[in-house]
């Protein structure tokens, strides 16, 4: 009986490890979302990083996105992108942060 339990624990540990590996592997995956900006945090004109909080249109969840590319940072600085804008975003989870790979205003014709 004892043995069986320990085997089960082992299996569980193995499963966990596999699961962890799985999620590590998927860290490289891009997640897509469309949402409205509820908040932009950027520290001054020379900031090299900023965060934008998006309200996911599908789930209504708030997602905090880290933005590091110069073009988008510049659009935060001169307010070409502002709170209330709807954004099409692709991000990757890196070290627990949702790092933006694409951050574009949705715009109709």
């Amino acid at each position: 009986m004892k043995k069986a339990v320990s085997v089960m624990v082992l299996v569980a540990v193995a499963a966990l490890t596999i699961f962890c590996f799985g999620s590590v592997a998927s860290a490289g995956e891009e997640i897509k979302m469309v949402g409205v900006i509820t908040k932009i945090d950027i520290a001054g004109k020379d900031a090299k990083t900023a965060t934008a909080t998006l309200k996911d249109n599908k789930t209504e969840q708030l997602v905090v996105i880290t933005v590091e590319d110069d073009l988008t940072l510049d659009k935060f600085k001169d307010h070409r992108i502002v709170e209330g804008d709807e954004i099409r975003c692709k991000y990757e989870v890196i070290d627990g942060k949702n790092v933006s790979k694409l951050f574009r205003k949705t715009a109709g014709c």
């Binding site: 073009l71 949705t106 109709g108 014709c109």
Partner: peptide, 24 residues
């Protein structure tokens, strides 16, 4: 570049719509 892209970047109904015009 930014001054020109105010209008040129989103021609055709959004960024990279009309021509895939990226200038980086």
């Amino acid at each position: 570049v930014k001054n020109c892209m105010v209008c040129h970047e989103a021609a055709g109904g959004g960024v990279i719509v009309k021509r895939g015009f990226s200038f980086t």
